[in-house]
């Protein structure tokens, strides 16, 4: 299992990287960006991907940062997931993103895999796209025509497909800090810890006067992209929190999923069942962390 031959470039700046991507695009040469390689390398070794050229972003120090912008946290796309997991800023001010990070693979995968790579790769079972939809994150991309910002809802298109053009580099992901009093949960069910999830949920919950004033329920690993479950949120609105309500919301959410993924790991029915369980557990955990 060895990658097929390709040419390799490691540009020194973002501008050079984009110029290279544009040049290959013009020439009809298939070029792929290489970030941490933790998804691309297996695809090259299995020869699922056979690009003619790799453009390695490792020298772009300008894309390595975790920045406190007050109400927003900005992460440079080449920041490693391990750096994200070790960031006190993220752990304290956006714990949902921290918990999502801790569910990704294993430590050595997080050490070399980048934050941006997980967004660009857009695996249906990946944690970050669910966090992105739950938090209304924004993705910044730079291409030959300049920079643009893409909201999470438009960014993830389908299996392994995003809104990014072949000539665009994802440079930054941006998230709001958690609003005071909001409860959060990020959990998943997998056969062993570190395995890809069979089903997972990202949940936000706000209380006012002992009732649920607002909620956000997003699940992943069950459809081509992470999906929000408005039916579950509808069940919760204005209600007093409790285990029975959370179970009902989980069932309502599970019922509204169209054609859950069925594969060797879990049938469609089993995945639907897991959604109801993981959503109910997530809501209970979020409630325990909410104030108001």
């Amino acid at each position: 299992m060895k990658p097929a031959p390709f040419d390799y470039y490691a540009p020194e700046s973002l501008a050079d990287a984009i110029a290279l991507l544009a040049k290959f695009d013009d020439e009809g040469v298939e070029a792929k960006i290489l970030a941490g390689g933790q998804s691309l390398m297996p695809m090259l070794s299995l020869r699922v991907a056979r690009p003619e050229v790799l453009v390695d972003l490792r020298k772009l120090a300008e894309l390595h940062y975790i920045r406190d912008e007050g109400d927003t946290i900005a992460i440079g796309s080449m920041t490693s997931k391990r750096a994200a997991e070790e960031s006190a800023l993220i752990r304290e001010r956006q714990p949902l993103f921290h918990d999502a990070t801790m569910n990704i693979g294993h430590l050595p995968i997080r050490a070399h895999g980048t934050v941006g790579g997980s967004f660009a790769h857009a695996d249906p079972a990946a944690e970050y796209p669910a966090a992105a939809i739950a938090l209304d994150m924004q993705m910044k991309a730079v291409g030959p025509d300049g920079a643009r910002v893409i909201g999470a809802r438009d960014f993830f298109v389908t299996y392994l497909t995003t809104d990014l053009a072949a000539t665009e580099v994802l440079t930054e992901v941006r998230m709001p800090v958690l609003a005071p009093g909001t409860g959060w949960s990020f959990r998943e069910i997998s056969r062993r810890k570190g395995d890809f999830a069979l089903a997972g949920a990202a949940v936000l919950l706000s209380l006012a006067g002992g009732r649920i004033s607002d909620s956000r329920v997003v699940v992943f690993a069950v459809n081509a992209t992470a999906v929000r479950l408005p039916a579950a949120e509808q069940v919760l609105r204005g209600q007093a929190p409790g285990e029975a309500l959370f179970r009902e919301a989980g069932l309502a959410g599970a019922a509204e999923i169209e054609e859950p993924i069925a594969d060797v790991h879990a049938s469609a029915d089993f995945r639907r069942h897991l959604v109801s369980v993981v959503v109910a557990r997530g809501l209970a955990e979020a409630q325990s962390r909410a104030r108001g």
Binding site: A10, L34, G37, M41, D56, R58, R82, P108, A111, H112
Partner: peptide, 17 residues
């Protein structure tokens, strides 16, 4: 690699320059 455990099969030699 540079103080952190990583997979040597998920990296190109050229990336470790």
């Amino acid at each position: 690699k540079n103080g952190q455990a990583v997979r040597a099969c998920l990296m190109l030699a050229v990336q470790a320059d």
